[in-house]
């Protein structure tokens, strides 16, 4: 390669690396602001501000969804595998909302560590499959658990 071109190429690549480093440092510094939601662990650790509008997200705990008799108010637990927070929501839940599903809620955390949501969004994962396959997987999963149970007794 012509030495002049080589030099130019190196200057450009060097500048690009510099800019990439600067952007990288900025993104690391802003990590908390770029994260869309607080996880239950963060909230349990007291990292989330109280009485300020924030987002909280995690998996809906199986068997935790309970509704009041009148009105739309529903409360459910959300977990990230470590801690659980309770979310109360008075509104229409998205179609994908179900137990075991990931959700992101917008709202405020009150003093009793209950998250009062004004909006609930459903997350979905990167797995796509026909219903039959999902059923078969669930059956296999349950069977595996039953086997474990029967082996235990």
């Amino acid at each position: 390669m012509h030495p002049q071109r080589k030099q130019k190429l190196f200057i450009i690549l060097f500048m690009l690396c510099g800019i990439a480093l600067a952007v990288g440092l900025m993104l690391v510094a802003l990590k908390e602001n770029i994260n869309l939601f607080y996880t239950p662990t963060q909230i349990a650790a007291g990292e989330a501000p109280i009485n300020r509008t924030i987002r909280a997200g995690g998996m809906v705990v199986e068997g935790s969804v309970s509704r009041v008799k009148e009105g739309l108010t529903v409360s459910f637990g959300v977990t990230d595998g470590k801690d659980i927070i309770t979310i109360e929501f008075d509104g229409i839940l998205p179609d994908l909302f179900r137990e075991g599903q990931g959700i992101v809620a917008l709202g405020q955390l009150n003093e009793n560590n209950v998250f009062i949501a004004s909006e609930v969004l459903a997350k979905h994962d990167e797995n796509y499959m026909p219903p039959e396959v999902a059923d078969a997987l669930e059956k296999a999963h349950n069977k595996g658990q039953d086997d474990v149970k029967s082996a235990r007794y």
Partner: peptide, 30 residues
Amino acid sequence: IIKYSVEWWNTLHQPATITLTKKPTMAPEM
């Protein structure tokens, strides 16, 4: 940043279905 945004931060968007290194997390007929 676009590519790894779903891994570096928590997002509403789900992680990638198709990656070069792993099997796609999608049924073959889809």
